[in-house]
Design a protein around this nucleic acid. Structure first.
Length: 780
DNA sequence: ACGCGACGCGCC
DNA sequence: AAAGGGCGCGTCGCGT
């Protein structure tokens, strides 16, 4: 790690995404001024903004004081804790100090690893990690934290004491409002406790690039001791909200019984990490870079056929938005538009690198659409040929050698740069393992997310990549995935007796839906006949039913489903109607969910998690008279003077309900002419998210419940089972070889028992065992 | 030099 | 005429 770095907990969350750039090379020098200057600035700023707290802060520098404070915490039964560190990695960065607070007492800061920036020597009068650990272990009280897994891991890995957090204010904040834009403790405290009365001083900037160890203890204490206090204040505020709002009962259940227990699972998964095979990676590197180089050459050879045109482009005279070929033999005098990559103004003529940068969208656009003169697929909105260079758009011109070369290159480019080249850089040199960070409430639906690296988007289609991850020596890897987790959640939520039946009879749901919707036998809707031969018609029926169901689940429109099924919109609509006729409960579920969202502004999962979609409460359109004369005091009269009469509203509504796109714009424009302002809310209403949030969220609840049960299972613990990566409907884990057999059985069993009485249909769960992630299957 | 949005793409 | 939910990240190129 670079020497001069700092991370405080709040920055950790607030700057979650920027962590990589921050931990890379930030130095005191780059941040300006000598270290002494920087420290002096920090001293002065902290003094100015936090000096008022000096009398309320205790710096704990001896065992007795710590012991006394721990006693106070025990007496109160509650405290809050926050750590200061040199970075974001609990395995490689240092624990600098710990702040503890218990209500009614002074705030404290325990310096542990401060260093004099003058002498470079460790500052005297600091407690050791051992002693701090010893007393933290006695903290048998409720503990508030913010982003608890981070602090628990730091304290665990440096002092040996594993704290148990009772209230993670970050997770509570996510449960209370997943749309909250502020993710950091200080900002949340500012907003909800101080209510914006005081200026939020940007400590992030102040401490940027400074190793917290070099901050003098007195200064550090003022800053650091404040954090546990605001953590507690914010947590208290949250507890009060949960207590007083009856409609948060279920959300509270999710918080206490799902989110908080998952914290301990995350701590273990992050600390465990996954073993990464560097040698195998080196082999892949060679193999794939060779391929990539070949593809790049093919691209260059292909576009060299257009060298004349390229030169003409480069030498073209630029006139405003257009250019003219000076050479009459090519596209003589013809004007061409170009250079609108993002819809906003870009440079008039794209500067082409030599060789042309295949990774540059603007350069490819110039090459394909201006120089070669290809026409992309028609853009739905502008109705002009698209200038997109996405795979989908390029396919329209896949006969062109340059386009083909780009597609070929792209197939490997992501795999090489994102996975083969990047993953080895993520390996912790101390143990040869990759320890990514899991954000257990990363997605607003309740799903996990993963970063540094993202372990949830490792290619599965390409088997080479996942094989870089292997089981610890003496262990086997295993992955258990829920089959059809989301359709099953949907079945449980809509309680369609036919769907429930299908699952209870062990039938293939999609085939059953196809059978009942298209009035044919179940057997006629399967991909294979009983004799093992393929049945193309059955396969098609099944896939149609599947598309419709998943379409509903994803909030997908009929035209999109039509495209997937390679049929017309009308036909897709017909199929959808059939399915809805056969399974009215699906349509009812969709309607109920939309109604719930429109009425309450949120939807709920099977276990009571909420997804707030407040825009759903807005009417589709709002009507008001535009003030003709703003100087007229009457025009500001609130008593309905601006209200458009109901009959006029009705007339517009009926017109609008039948109109789309430009027609709709025309109606709104027409109304404006007549002095009526129509606000179109339909584009802001998250109709497509409504059903999906319920299903995806329920599935996330279910997976988390499984993780908790797996983590707490005594037998699995005994057998050395440990989870490694949650991939939404799948859990990757490992265990010592000798226990593989019994672990597999119990693993699958617990997974299927996890949803408990909420599920009245069987859950099947296959567990695959291998040496490597997606390696050859081992039969036990 | 760095932050950020757009784009494109990997996963479920 | 209509067009897919949830993520993280590499790269580019603009803006500061």
């Amino acid at each position: 790690m670079p020497l001069f770095e700092i991370s405080t907990k709040e920055q950790d969350l607030a700057l979650l995404k920027k962590s990589k750039t921050r931990t890379k090379t930030t130095t005191v020098k780059k941040s300006g001024g000598s270290i002494a200057d920087r420290i002096n600035t920090i001293k002065a700023m902290v003094e100015t903004h936090l000096g008022k707290f000096a009398d309320e802060t205790i710096i704990i520098q001896d065992e007795q004081t710590l012991s006394d404070y721990v006693d106070k915490c025990l007496k109160n039964g509650i405290c809050s804790i926050d750590t200061e560190t040199t970075g974001l990695d609990p395995l490689q960065d240092e624990l600098v100090g710990v702040g503890i607070y218990t209500p009614g007492e002074k705030t404290t800061y325990i310096p542990i690893n401060h260093i004099s920036y003058v002498t470079g020597q460790k500052v005297k009068n600091q407690l050791s990690l051992d002693v701090v650990g010893k007393y933290l272990a006695k903290l048998n009280a409720d503990i508030d934290m913010f982003n608890a897994a981070f602090d628990i891991r730091f304290i665990k890995n440096h002092t040996g004491t594993r704290l148990k957090c009772t209230w993670d204010a970050y997770l509570a904040s996510r449960c209370l409002n997943e749309n909250e834009p502020n993710k950091g403790l200080k900002k949340l405290h500012q907003k909800y406790i101080l209510r914006g009365e005081e200026d939020a001083f940007k400590f992030d900037e102040l401490f940027k690039g400074i190793d917290f160890r070099y901050v003098p203890i007195k200064t550090a204490a003022l800053y650091a001791a404040h954090d546990p206090k605001i953590t507690w204040e914010y947590a208290e505020y949250q507890r009060n909200i949960f207590r007083t709002k009856e409609n948060l009962k279920d959300v509270y259940w999710v918080f206490k019984n799902i989110e908080m227990p998952v914290v301990d699972v995350v701590v273990d998964m992050e600390d465990t990490g996954v073993e990464f095979d560097m040698e195998y990676n080196a082999q892949l590197k060679e193999k794939y870079h060779k391929i990539l180089d070949e593809k790049l050459e093919e691209f260059q050879t292909a576009y060299h056929m257009y060298d004349d045109e390229i030169n003409a482009y480069k030498n073209s005279e630029v006139i405003s938005d257009e250019y003219i070929y000076p050479d009459a033999t090519t596209s003589a005098g013809k004007k061409n538009k170009y250079g609108k990559a993002t819809g906003k103004k870009v440079s008039n003529r794209v500067k082409l690198d030599d060789p042309i940068n295949i990774a540059s969208v603007p350069q490819l656009q110039a090459l394909l659409y201006d120089i070669i003169g290809l026409k992309g697929p028609i853009d739905k909105k502008t109705k002009e040929p698209s200038r997109s260079t996405s795979e989908e758009s390029l396919k329209a011109n896949k006969d062109n050698a340059v386009v083909k070369a780009i597609l070929d290159y792209r197939e490997f480019a992501t795999i090489v740069s994102t996975f083969i080249d990047k993953l080895p850089e993520c390996v912790n040199p101390k143990d040869g393992r990759i320890h990514c960070k899991f954000n257990q409430y990363g997605a607003d639906t309740g799903r996990f997310s993963s970063q540094d690296p993202n372990m949830q988007n490792i290619p599965s289609h390409n088997k080479d990549i996942r094989k870089m991850f292997k089981a610890t020596d003496g262990y086997v890897m295993m992955s258990a995935d829920y089959s059809q987790q989301e359709p099953k959640c949907m079945t449980m939520m809509c309680q369609d007796p036919l769907m429930v039946n299908a699952y209870n009879q062990g039938k293939d749901l999609y085939a059953e839906i196809a059978s009942l919707s298209f009035n044919t036998t179940y057997e006629n809707c399967l991909e294979f006949r009983p004799d093992g031969t393929t049945n193309p018609e059955g396969k098609e029926r099944r896939s149609q039913a599947k598309s419709i169901l998943l379409g509903v689940l994803y909030g997908r429109g009929v035209p999109s489903i039509a495209e997937q099924l390679k049929t017309t919109t009308a036909k897709a609509q017909e199929i959808k109607d059939s399915v809805f006729r056969g399974f009215p409960a699906i349509e009812q579920f969709e309607k109920d969910s939309q109604a719930m969202a429109e009425e309450c502004g949120y939807v709920t999962t099977l276990w009571g998690r909420k997804r707030r979609l407040p825009a759903m409460m807005l009417p589709d359109y709002e009507f008001e008279y535009i003030d003709k004369d703003s100087s007229d005091p009457l025009s500001f009269d609130e008593d309905g003077d601006n209200e458009v009469p109901a009959n006029i509203v009705r007339s517009y509504m009926s017109k609008l309900s039948r109109a789309w796109g430009k027609k709709k714009q025309a109606i709104i424009a027409e109304a404006k002419q007549e002095g009526i302002k129509i606000t179109d809310n339909t584009k802001n209403k998250d109709v497509t998210k409504v059903v999906n949030a319920r299903i995806q969220g329920s599935a996330a609840d279910m997976s988390k419940l499984a993780m908790i049960m797996l983590h707490n299972d005594e037998k699995l613990k005994e057998w050395g089972f440990r989870m490694l990566i949650p991939v939404h409907d799948e859990i990757i884990a490992e265990c010592p070889k000798e226990h593989a057999k019994e672990v597999v059985e119990r693993f699958a069993q617990i997974m299927s028992e996890a949803p408990g009485e909420k599920f009245t249909i069987p859950i099947k769960c296959d567990v695959e065992v291998s040496e490597r992630w997606y390696g050859d299957r081992i039969t036990l």
